[in-house]
Structures are given as structure tokens and as C-alpha cells.
């Protein structure tokens, strides 16, 4: 490569490009994020601690973590299963399944929420039957979990499939000829092969699950202390009147942001490990 090519263009163009890039990131990301931090600590630490003591906030945080953990567990188990199914087996409808898994990425979460109501709501397909058995899905925790599972569905699968494809089936066959049964092969060969991709997918799902708003908003009813997740708490508190309500909204938003940053750090640490394999 010619030495001149490495830094093409005039210094002026370079500076203009830099300023545009920095300005873009500042305006779109740093400034809004900074505003949240600033508003949160505007009146010192005491109002923040007051927000943290709000029982509705605490309930929302507990519910949010509960829903996220259950959803991630479900998506991990089914994600591994679906990945193995798609990579190692050939069956009619395999490509369709592969395409459907990506659907939650492309459809708006609000559509997911409405679809769930059509199926499980009071006037939905299964709603009345489930109601008569005393099981409530919509406007209760099960709907929150369902919505979150759907929205985060592709994340584990899309991380695990390429790794499984690259690993091929020979290691599995070798283990088989050495006497390992299906379970032993899964634990000793498949899991260690996909572990970093799986960890990455789990963290992504966790972040997505905690931050989910649209689908959850539709199916939750957002009853404070009952079916309100942290994102719904932020939304509702922000729309309420009163200084403390606004403070609550900022505190919760700030915490959600902190968790997101934490996940970004974890992901940044996991990424190289996955690629090294």
C-alpha cells in the first residue's frame, strides 16, 4: 500500500469529519445521558435515597429482576435447544423456523404485546379457558415473562448457532465412539464449545429483558407494586405531577443506565474470549 493512502484527504476534511462524528455522538448519546445524571443528582443525594426507599420502586425493581431472570433462563434453555436443532438436524420447516426466530427483532414490541392480548386476553383464544381454570396471564406476571421471552428470543440463538456450525459434528462423533452418551456429550463437549457465545448471548438477553418497555407496557396494565417493571415505573413516575415523582423517575432511569453500562463492560470483556476460541 502506498504510504499516502493511509491518511487520505486534506487535514481540513479530516477535522470536519472528526467534528461531525464527535458532535453526533455527543448530541445523540452523551448529552441526553448526561442530562439524566445531572437531573438525578440535582438536589444532592438525599432525594435519590428517598426515591430508593419508595416501596413502589422497590417492588418494580424486584419484579423487573424476577421477570428478566426467568425470561433469560427460559431463553437460554430453549435457545440452546433450538440452536442444536437447527445446526445438527435436517427436517422440513427448518429454514422457516430459522426465519421465525428473527421475527421478534424486526417487529415492533408493541405488536408483540397486542398479539399476546389477542391470544391470552379476556376475549382472546385461550383467555376464557385459562380464566375459568383460575389462571390469569394478561395484566399479571406471566404476561410480562411471555412478552420479555419473545422480545429477547433471538439473542441467545444468534450467538450460539455460528459457534455450533463452526465446531461441526466430528468432536461429538469422536466422543460418541469413545463411549459417551447424549447427556455426557452435551455436558462435556457441546457446552464447553459454546460457553463464551452462550455467556455473551445471556448478557445481551438480560440487558434486553431489563430494558424492555413496549411489549411489557401493553400486557402489564402497570399497576404500581403489582405489575410494574422498572421501565414502566420510570414512565409512570415521569408523567405524574410532583417533584418527588420526577425525582423517582430520574433515579430509576439512572439505575437502569448503570446496569446497562455494567452489561456493556461485561460484554466487552466476553467478546475477545469468544473470538479467541
Amino acid at each position: 500500500m502506498a504510504p499516502g493512502r493511509r491518511r487520505s484527504g486534506s487535514p481540513l476534511v479530516r477535522w470536519v469529519l472528526r467534528i461531525i462524528a464527535v458532535g453526533y455522538v455527543l448530541g445523540l448519546v452523551a448529552l441526553p445521558v448526561g442530562t439524566v445524571v445531572q437531573h438525578t443528582f440535582e438536589n444532592g443525594l438525599e432525594p435519590v435515597l428517598e426515591s430508593l426507599r419508595n416501596p413502589d420502586f422497590q417492588a418494580a425493581a424486584r419484579l423487573g429482576v424476577f421477570v428478566a431472570v426467568i425470561s433469560v433462563l427460559i431463553n437460554t434453555v430453549f435457545g440452546i435447544g433450538i440452536s442444536i436443532l437447527i445446526v445438527r438436524y435436517r427436517f422440513p420447516g427448518r429454514r422457516l423456523l430459522n426465519a421465525i426466530i428473527d421475527l421478534p427483532v424486526s417487529i415492533s414490541p408493541i405488536v408483540v404485546g397486542i398479539a399476546l392480548i389477542f391470544v391470552y386476553g379476556t376475549n382472546g383464544w385461550f383467555g376464557p379457558a385459562l380464566n375459568s381454570m383460575g389462571i390469569q396471564i394478561i395484566f399479571a406476571t406471566p404476561a410480562l415473562v411471555l412478552a420479555t421471552v419473545i422480545v429477547a428470543l433471538p439473542l441467545v440463538v444468534r450467538e450460539v448457532i455460528p459457534v455450533l456450525e463452526e465446531a461441526g459434528t466430528e468432536q461429538d462423533q469422536a466422543a460418541q465412539s469413545l463411549g459417551a452418551n447424549g447427556f455426557q456429550r452435551f455436558v462435556r463437549i457441546t457446552l464447553p464449545t459454546i460457553r463464551w457465545a452462550l455467556a455473551y448471548g445471556v448478557v445481551l438477553s438480560l440487558a434486553r429483558s431489563l430494558g424492555e418497555f413496549g411489549a411489557v407496557r401493553v400486557v402489564s396494565g402497570s399497576v404500581a407494586g403489582v405489575s410494574q417493571t422498572p421501565t414502566l415505573f420510570v414512565n409512570d413516575a415521569y408523567q405524574e405531577f410532583g417533584a418527588q415523582a420526577e425525582q423517582d423517575a430520574f433515579t430509576a432511569a439512572f439505575l437502569l443506565m448503570c446496569v446497562a453500562v455494567l452489561f456493556i463492560v461485561v460484554i466487552a470483556l466476553l467478546r475477545p474470549k469468544e473470538q479467541n476460541q
Binding site: A167, Q171, Q173, A174, S177, L178, I189, Q277
Partner: peptide, 12 residues
């Protein structure tokens, strides 16, 4: 016992 062309080593 089976030996594969591409070794099928357990990489981890």
C-alpha cells in the same frame, strides 16, 4: 476406536 481425517480434537 475412530480416528478422523481432521483429528476431531476436543479443543477445550
Amino acid at each position: 476406536g475412530f480416528v478422523f481425517q481432521h483429528y476431531a480434537a476436543f479443543k477445550h
